[in-house]
Design a protein around this nucleic acid. Structure first.
Lengths: 216, 216
DNA sequence: GGATAATTTGACCGATTGGTAAACATTACA
DNA sequence: TGTAATGTTTACCAATCGGTCAAATTATCC
């Protein structure tokens, strides 16, 4: 009697690693484009270039695939915020945070859309991650920002809404890419638009956060 | 022999108007929560409180429902941008644009999510609207902003990315509501968060766009 | 009130959904 | 090289999908 579920084997074989990688890559394609409910196992199987039962041999359910994908992507996704350094200079820290987030929007748009789809549809699968690890990390960084404001390095402002505004403005270029391209027209839709966006956003945030000269 | 399709009758009856209203209301609920592909006619029928064939009597296909919803919502959705006035004072115009967009995010989050879902998933049903009416309106308002910059009323900046950043920061509070609530925690998730957001965003944009004193 | 048009429903259709069973093929390892 | 574990496929399942049909019901108007 064989135990046919890869998940139940203790040692991961070479084939397992390769195929799981292949599947998650395809799943990222599909989930990020259609959301969880709108995606089908057949689609993922086709993109992955394998049969549906074969795919289900590695991930027992559609949920399991989604789960694995979220887990893998979440850590990387929070990396830029984690790099936010309390000791650094506020201006350079904010500038490089914007840069990093914009680079992620440019280089990993599917990952951004995966989360966007999930959150947009009520975050039924990642509620715990949002209320747990994410909130804790944001709380911590919000304190850093508050300290900067208190010491007069930046203007007094709500640190949470500051973080939200950096998230939204940068991820916009991944999540709403079609709209951005449509509005900019073909001539400005090249990769240069990320440079333009970076320049504008740095200008906006550095200018908008400059400490009030009256208080100085 | 009756002509059983409401769409083919010339005069709209009272019942038709009521039921179509009822259906679109339900469709907005469902489409905004799951996107087009992830939504089912059965779900909409259940929310609308009528049988599926009855629903299909008023809208022949799922696409037709979606189409009608998009058409109805698009005009209203662009209203704030249309109100952007070239003659007005830049600071008050931008301030009130932010206010209006935030109010829409607060009062019509489903409409925002309907578009967000659509654009996020590649805008397969509204590509023409984006490249046509939307682009034209944005082009027009971008010129207004450029003129303000040229006359030194605001800092020189890319008007398109300015508009994108106002869209993204404001709509964030509708589209990513779950995340915002999760991060802010229960204590700050009341309606007051929109006031906080408005205060921060006005501060950010007014400060970030203040004309460079060196050029003055 | 009766004729006619408009509305509603239950039963149903083929296609697709997520997922399974079991036979078959391949790999790893002694 | 044999064999047991791992991997793959074909055929299939019940449930749900978008949508149709004809019959039944209700509203409208003379």
């Amino acid at each position: 009697m064989t135990i046919p579920r890869a998940a139940k084997t203790l040692r991961r074989t070479r084939i397992q690693e390769e195929k799981e990688e292949q599947i998650l890559e395809a799943a990222l394609d599909v989930f990020s484009a259609s959301g969880f409910r709108g995606s089908t196992i057949d689609q993922i199987a086709e993109v992955a270039g394998m049969s549906k039962p074969n795919l289900l041999y590695y991930f027992r359910t559609k949920e399991a695939m989604h789960r694995a994908l979220i887990d893998r992507v979440l850590y990387t996704w929070l990396e830029p915020l984690r790099a936010f350094d309390a000791e650094g200079n506020p201006e350079t820290e904010i500038r490089s945070y914007i840069r990093r987030k914009l680079e992620m929007a440019r280089d990993f748009p599917r990952e951004s859309r995966l989360f966007a789809n999930e959150v947009l549809q009520g975050a039924p699968h990642i509620e715990d991650e949002l209320k747990g690890p994410l909130k804790e990390l944001v709380d911590e960084k919000a304190e850093v920002i508050r300290a900067w404001a208190k010491s007069g390095k930046i203007v007094t402002c709500d640190p949470y809404h500051l973080i939200f505004s950096i998230w939204s403005t940068t991820q916009h270029y991944a999540d709403f890419d079609v709209q951005v391209r449509a509005v900019l027209g073909q001539e400005h839709s090249g990769e240069g638009r990320f440079e333009d966006a970076a320049r504008f956003l740095e200008q906006l945030f550095i200018g908008g956060l400059r400490p009030d000269p009256l208080e100085a």
